[in-house]
Design a protein around this nucleic acid. Structure first.
Length: 93
DNA sequence: TTAGCCTTGAAC
DNA sequence: GTTCAAGGCTAA
């Protein structure tokens, strides 16, 4: 058995770093990001970053910066509707 | 407002 | 008929 989950594990959200529950919106994300992304996009939520929109999204700061969290969601390639955002991510099956 | 769990629908 | 994903609802 190899315990290589020390640096980065494939079973972690590329957004917040929580444990993924499965494929959501085209990416492996956690239930939190799923509900957050849905609530944000489906309700046309509008957040504002108090800094430079470059906050580091972690499991502790993700709740502090919903704007940067949502930004990262799109940055990793999440899409709710037929929104096709051109973004290339390194993901090989 | 965020996270989690449950239910329903679609695809295979 | 079964499996996976998305959506909805509830709880903290």
């Amino acid at each position: 058995m190899e315990y290589t989950y020390d640096d980065d594990l494939e079973e972690l959200c590329p957004v917040c770093g929580d444990k993924v529950s499965g494929y959501h919106y085209g990416l492996l994300t956690c239930e939190s990001c799923k509900g957050f992304f849905k609530r944000t996009v489906q309700n046309n939520k509008r957040y504002t970053c108090a800094e430079n929109q470059e906050c580091k999204i972690d499991k502790t700061q993700r709740k502090r910066c919903p704007f940067c969290r949502f930004q990262k969601c799109l940055n990793v390639g999440m899409r709710l509707e037929g929104n096709n955002n051109n973004n290339n991510n390194n993901n090989s099956s």
